[in-house]
C-alpha cells in the first residue's frame, strides 16, 4: 500500500493536492482513501492531508503514522514540531520538500537516512506561496504509477470548477514538476502492514481517579495562549522602519487584531514576531507607510523565524 502524507498551511492547497493524487491513483486502478485533517487553527496554520492507495480494498483508516512519502508544500514547516512533518519517518520514507534548500542539506540537518528531494518554487510563484500543482506533479512522478495522461485527467476532474485558464496553469505547473523529477521515477516504495508477530505492545495503564479540581477541563492561569507561537503561520513579515515611523497614536497597535504590536512610553511600536500572523493590516494602516513587507527566510530549520 502507498501511504502518502501532505503537509502545508491552511490555504496552500494541500487538501486539493491530496485529492488530485487520490483521483490519479484511482484512475490508475487503485483502491484509494484521501482525507484532510484540520485542527482548531485557521488560514495560515499547519494542516495535513493524506492518501492511501492499494491494489486491494483498504481497511486502514485515519492518520498515517508510517508514511512512504511525505510531501511538504512549505519547507518552513519541517522545523515546526506542531506541524508533525517528521512524524513516523524512517529510512524507507521519501521526503519531498517545496523550497530552495537542497535535499542534502536537509538530510544532514535532520539526520535523515531516507531520500530527500526538493522542488524549487517556480519562477512565477510569488515569494512565500507554495505551488500545490508543482507538489502534485512531483508526487505523481515519485510514485511512478501515475502516467502523464492520468495526471492530466485527475487535475481536470478536481479543478474543473476553477475555469479554463486556472486549470491550464495548474496542469502546466504540475507537468513541469513531473518532468523535472523524471530521474526519480518510482522512488517511493509501497510499505507493508504492521506485523502482528513480535509487535510492540501498547503501554496501557490503569487510569486512576484524579480529584475533580484537577480533572475538570478548566484553565486557571491567565493568558496562556501566549505560549502558542502563531508567528509560525507567517509567510511574510511586517518590518517597521523606525526612521519613517512618526510615533503616531499607535494606530498599528490598535488595529493589529492579534495584540501583537506593543507601544511603550516612548510611543515606539514593537512587533511581537512570536505571534504576528503576517496579516499586514498594520502595513495598510500606517499613516506614514513606515512598515515594509519582507519574505520570511525560507527553510530555516532551527526555528529562526522569529
Amino acid at each position: 500500500m502507498y501511504r502518502i502524507r501532505f503537509h502545508g498551511r491552511g490555504g496552500q492547497g494541500m487538501k486539493t493536492a491530496s485529492r488530485i493524487i487520490g483521483t490519479a491513483l484511482f484512475l490508475a486502478g487503485y483502491e484509494v482513501q484521501d482525507a484532510p485533517r484540520y485542527g482548531a487553527e485557521r488560514r495560515g496554520a499547519p494542516i495535513f492531508a493524506y492518501v492511501r492507495a492499494d491494489r486491494r480494498s483498504i481497511n486502514e483508516r485515519g492518520v498515517i503514522d508510517r508514511p512512504d512519502l511525505v510531501a511538504v508544500a512549505d519547507d518552513s514547516l519541517v522545523a515546526l514540531p506542531a506541524a508533525g512533518v517528521r512524524q513516523g519517518i524512517d529510512s524507507h520514507t521519501v521526503l519531498l520538500l517545496h523550497g530552495r534548500t537542497p535535499g542534502a542539506a536537509w538530510q544532514e540537518r535532520l539526520n535523515l537516512a531516507g531520500p530527500v528531494f526538493t522542488l524549487a518554487p517556480a519562477a512565477h510563484v510569488e515569494a512565500g506561496h507554495a505551488s500545490a500543482a508543482r507538489v502534485v506533479g512531483a508526487v505523481a512522478r515519485l510514485l511512478g504509477v501515475v502516467d502523464r495522461d492520468t495526471l492530466i485527467a485527475a487535475i481536470r476532474r478536481e479543478l474543473a470548477g476553477l475555469g479554463d485558464s486556472e486549470l491550464a496553469a495548474n496542469t502546466r505547473d504540475a507537468l513541469a514538476a513531473y518532468d523535472e523529477l523524471a530521474d526519480q521515477h518510482g522512488a517511493v516504495a509501497e510499505g507493508g502492514a504492521v506485523v502482528s508477530r513480535d509487535f510492540l505492545p501498547p503501554r496501557w495503564i490503569e487510569l486512576g481517579l484524579d480529584v475533580a479540581a484537577l480533572a475538570a477541563p478548566a484553565i486557571h492561569a491567565p493568558a496562556t495562549s501566549t505560549a502558542v507561537q502563531t508567528g509560525l503561520w507567517r509567510t511574510v513579515r511586517p518590518v517597521i522602519d523606525h526612521a519613517r515611523c512618526n510615533r503616531c497614536w499607535w494606530l498599528c497597535s490598535t488595529f493589529c487584531p492579534e495584540s501583537a504590536i506593543a507601544v511603550g512610553g516612548d510611543r515606539v511600536p514593537v512587533i511581537d514576531y512570536d505571534h504576528c500572523k503576517g496579516c499586514l493590516v498594520c502595513v495598510t494602516q500606517c499613516p506614514t507607510h513606515a512598515i515594509d513587507v519582507e519574505p520570511e527566510e525560507e527553510g530555516t530549520p532551527e526555528g529562526g523565524r522569529s
Partner: peptide, 11 residues
Amino acid sequence: HAPMSQGVAVL
C-alpha cells in the same frame, strides 16, 4: 483574583 476559563475545547 482567580481567572478561570471553563468549558474549553480540547484538541
